[in-house]
Amino acid sequence: MKTVYVVCATGIATSTMLRLKVEKFLEEQGIEARVLQYRVTEISPERCEADVILATTEIPPEFEKVAAVINGISLITGIGQGETLQSLAHALQRPKGE
């Protein structure tokens, strides 16, 4: 199953906001994926199981080699939300490793 990490600085507020939006979107679209919530200091590129990392904080560039990294701030402001969700869907439909 595909995996989405929702990531923010403290793992409390904005990653929860992302989680709610992403879970709702995946359900509406019928996309099966697990959504895991982390604070940015808890993840590392060596042990990254995510296909997509959706974040409200800066993610170190090394992660771009192991997952699609998407800025999730639009899901919180609502401005440009549709495009971000489309990028998420697109990234989840790609075969792993591409």
């Binding site: 507020a13 929860t16 906001m17 709610l20 402001t77 609502g78």
Partner: peptide, 12 residues
Amino acid sequence: VEMIGQLVKLIQ
């Protein structure tokens, strides 16, 4: 979680 979800609704 619910409170945070409602907060998103407010700011949007």
